[in-house]
Amino acid sequence: MNETSPADSPAPAQPTGRIVLLTTSHRVAPGLLSWPAWQALHAADRVLCADGAHPQLPYLRDAGIVVESGSPSAEELVGECAGGRTVLVVATGEGEPALTDGLARLAGSGRVAMPELELLPASYDLPGARLLDLVQVMDRIRLECPWSSQKTHKGLAKYAVEEAYELVEAIEEGDREELREELGDVLLQVVFHARIAEEDPETPFSIDDVAATIITKLIHRHPHVFADAVATTPEDVKEHWLRTKAIEKRRASVTDGVPLHQPALALATKLTSRVRTAGLDVPLPTGEGVGYELLALAARAESEGVDPESALRAAARVYREAVRGVEGVGDS
């Protein structure tokens, strides 16, 4: 019977340790990290960060975390984990592409016993976080773009109308990709105007003021959501909305606030809607000409719950396709 001497026994496998790549979002205030992130930071044997101006560093140091400045190579980092040590890397804003690529190459080579690798998000973007990026981009464009820096509210007004029509077209065509793009174009108009408004010497306001105004309005006009009012049908909601709006605006006439420069069919529809909702008995004016006939048609459509603008646009699309069919022209 052969006996194996201790010298011939395989050496016990050494623990390979752990590398944690900690990522944070620049859209979340520094220091607002998840509990698993704080646990990992306190448990790590070494904490490294290549960016000495990383916004998280003051908060980590206030919490007693020793953060070393450095950007070791993948090989050096793996070596640091020998003996079961944990090394945590606080990722910079660009991430750590050189490090992660190097670790991937090492892992694929099969030559190195790799430590456990973990990507740990320490903070997540909240819904709407990209809107902050849009505001920052708009700030820079306003300052550095020769065209954008000269624009005024009046100079941009026509674009708001154009983008709104393009949005309606995308909705009617049911094109989801186009819808997403056109919503962005409409949003740009809001952010652009708000940025210009910041520069007004007398009554400046910002995009935050715009958001605060609409938030206040929405909460106030939805007491069935944010207060103890009851609304069980869409009609109840509309009644709440109109009643609250009337109190807010204190208008002398139901026609106050109806923009006269909107498309004529939309204008006629809005006026007849206001009259019907208010319970007023105001006969339509009679007169000669197509205008009075169109007014009567708009009133009829509104009373039947039909948007005459949409109905006429749909009919015009059918007519357009008929014309193109006669011409032998296909959609490009």
Rank of each mutant, 00 (worst) to 15 (best):
N2P: 14
E3I: 13
T4D: 00
P10D: 03
A11G: 02
A11M: 06
G17Y: 11
G17M: 11
L21R: 08
T23S: 15
L33I: 09
L33M: 14
S34C: 04
S34Y: 05
W35I: 07
W35D: 14
P36A: 12
A37H: 11
Q39K: 10
L41Q: 11
C49R: 08
C49V: 08
H54I: 11
H54Q: 11
L57H: 10
P58K: 09
I65H: 06
S71G: 04
S71Q: 14
E75T: 07
L77S: 04
V78R: 01
C81Q: 09
G84Y: 07
T86Y: 09
V89Q: 03
E94Q: 14
G95R: 05
P97I: 04
L99G: 03
G102W: 03
L103W: 07
R111K: 14
P115V: 10
L117P: 01
E118C: 09
P121R: 08
Y124K: 05
R130W: 13
T152H: 04
T152F: 04
H153R: 09
A164T: 15
Y165V: 07
Y165G: 06
E166S: 00
E166N: 00
E172T: 01
E173I: 00
E173L: 12
G184I: 08
D185L: 07
L188S: 12
Q189Y: 05
Q189D: 08
R195F: 00
I196S: 01
E198K: 06
E199W: 04
D200W: 03
E202I: 03
F205Y: 15
L218P: 00
H220W: 00
H224Q: 14
H224L: 00
A227H: 13
P234I: 10
D236K: 04
K238C: 12
E239A: 15
V254G: 05
D256E: 15
G257N: 08
G257L: 07
V258R: 08
H261P: 00
A268F: 13
K270Q: 15
R274M: 11
R274W: 02
V275Q: 03
V282S: 01
P283W: 05
L284T: 08
G291T: 10
A301E: 06
G305N: 05
S310Y: 00
A316K: 09
R317P: 01
V318Y: 01
V323N: 04
S332E: 14
